[in-house]
C-alpha cells in the first residue's frame, strides 16, 4: 500500500474543502472496498479524509413518508430498521443479500453506492483496463467476462456495478443528497452513475470533492409488496450473477403499476423502464412478465460467456413478479 496522510473530518464542509483542494485525496467511510483496493494498488490516494464520525447516521421518516437515510448508516442497521424492513422489503432484502455480517457492519450507504466494479482486470494492476488506466485497453471482451455486462456497456468497458442495495434504490426512485464546494444539491440516483461510453474512468456524475451525505426514498404506495431476488454462484456471501428488485401493484388481476430494476447486468443499477412500460395495464400473468422482461432485454448485447444472463434475468423477473402477484391476489 502507498503511504498516505490521514485526517478525521469533524464537519462536512471541512471534509469537502479538504478533498476539493487535493486532486489525489479521497473520502474514507467503511473502507471495505477502498482499503482493499489500496492493498491491491488499484487505489492510490495520498490523503484519506475519514467521514465516519460525521453525524450522517440516522434514518428518519418524514410526514409524507419519505425515508431519509444518512450516508454513514451501516448496511446492517439499515436492513434491520423497522421503516425499511416493514415498509421497503426490497431494500432490506437487497442489503441482507449483500456481503457478510461483518462487512454489513462496516459498509455505509454512500460507500456502497460508490464501490467499484469487481471485474478481475480492473482489480489486477498487471493487466490493461480502460477504467483504471484510460486507453490501455480491455481484455474482458475476449477474456473473463462471464459475470460482466449485457446492457449499457461500451467497446471500452463491460464492467458491472456490484451493489445490491443500489438496485433496490433505483427501483424506488431514490434521490442522492450531495454536498460540494458550491453548496448542497440533490440528484436522482438514476443520474448518479454514468454509463462507460468512451470514458469508463468517469463512473459517476459527482465532481471531485463532492460528498454524498444521504439518500431520500420517496413514498411508494405499494412498496410493501416488493422483493429483491438475487442469483449467485453459491448460496451466500457472493456477488450477484443476476438480480431483480421489484414492486408490484395489481388490481383485479391487472398490473396497475410496477417498479423493476436489474443488478449485475449493467455498469449501473439498471432501471427497467421498457419492461415497466410494457407491463402497465397488462394481466398479471407469467406470460406478461416474460414479455416485459424480453422488451427490456431487446437491447441486450451478450458476449460469448455471459449470454446465459439473458434467459437468467428473464426467469428471475418472471419468478419475482409471479411471487408478488400471488401475494397481492
Amino acid at each position: 500500500m502507498r503511504p498516505f496522510q490521514f485526517v478525521r473530518a469533524d464537519d462536512a464542509a471541512t471534509a469537502v474543502q479538504t478533498v476539493t483542494a487535493n486532486p489525489k485525496a479521497k473520502f474514507l467511510a467503511g473502507g471495505t472496498n477502498l482499503v482493499d483496493l489500496m492493498k491491491l494498488g488499484v487505489e492510490r490516494p495520498d490523503l484519506l479524509v475519514d467521514l465516519t464520525r460525521l453525524p450522517f447516521d440516522s434514518v428518519d421518516v418524514e410526514a409524507d413518508g419519505t425515508v431519509r437515510i444518512g450516508t454513514n448508516v451501516r448496511n446492517s442497521d439499515l436492513a434491520a430498521h423497522p421503516a425499511v424492513r416493514n415498509g421497503l422489503p426490497l431494500l432490506s432484502q437487497a442489503l441482507l443479500a449483500g456481503a457478510s455480517g461483518q462487512l454489513r457492519n462496516m459498509a455505509t450507504v454512500g460507500g456502497n453506492l460508490l464501490q467499484r466494479t469487481r471485474c478481475v482486470y480492473f482489480q489486477d494492476v498487471t493487466k490493461p483496463c480502460n477504467k483504471r488506466q484510460p486507453g490501455s485497453g480491455c481484455p474482458a471482451r475476449q477474456g473473463d467476462h462471464r459475470n460482466l455486462a449485457i446492457l449499457g456497456a461500451s467497446e471500452a468497458c463491460i464492467a458491472t456495478h456490484p451493489s445490491d442495495m443500489a438496485v433496490a434504490l433505483a427501483a424506488l426512485d431514490a434521490r442522492v443528497a450531495v454536498s460540494g464546494p458550491d453548496g448542497d444539491r440533490e440528484t436522482p440516483l438514476a443520474e448518479l452513475h454514468a454509463l462507460p461510453g468512451e470514458h469508463p474512468e468517469q463512473e459517476t456524475t459527482l465532481r471531485h470533492g463532492e460528498l454524498i451525505t444521504g439518500i431520500a426514498v420517496p413514498p411508494l404506495a405499494y412498496a410493501e409488496r416488493s422483493a429483491y431476488r438475487k442469483v449467485r454462484d453459491r448460496a451466500s456471501y457472493a456477488f450477484a450473477v443476476a438480480s431483480v428488485a421489484a414492486a408490484l401493484d395489481v388490481e383485479d388481476g391487472v398490473v396497475r403499476d410496477v417498479r423493476l430494476a436489474f443488478g449485475a447486468v449493467a455498469p449501473k443499477p439498471w432501471r427497467a423502464h421498457a419492461a415497466e412500460d410494457a407491463l402497465r395495464g397488462r394481466p398479471a400473468t407469467a406470460a406478461s412478465f416474460r414479455a416485459a422482461a424480453e422488451a427490456e432485454l431487446a437491447a441486450a448485447e451478450p458476449l460469448r460467456d455471459n449470454a446465459f444472463k439473458v434467459p437468467l434475468i428473464t426467469n428471475v423477473v418472471v419468478r419475482t413478479l409471479s411471487d408478488l402477484a400471488g401475494e397481492t391476489s
Partner: peptide, 15 residues
C-alpha cells in the same frame, strides 16, 4: 461489540 473484518479496518480510524 459488533463483528468486523479487522483486515479492512485502518487502525488509525479506531482511536
Amino acid at each position: 461489540g459488533r463483528r468486523i473484518n479487522s483486515c479492512l479496518a485502518l487502525a488509525v480510524t479506531l482511536d
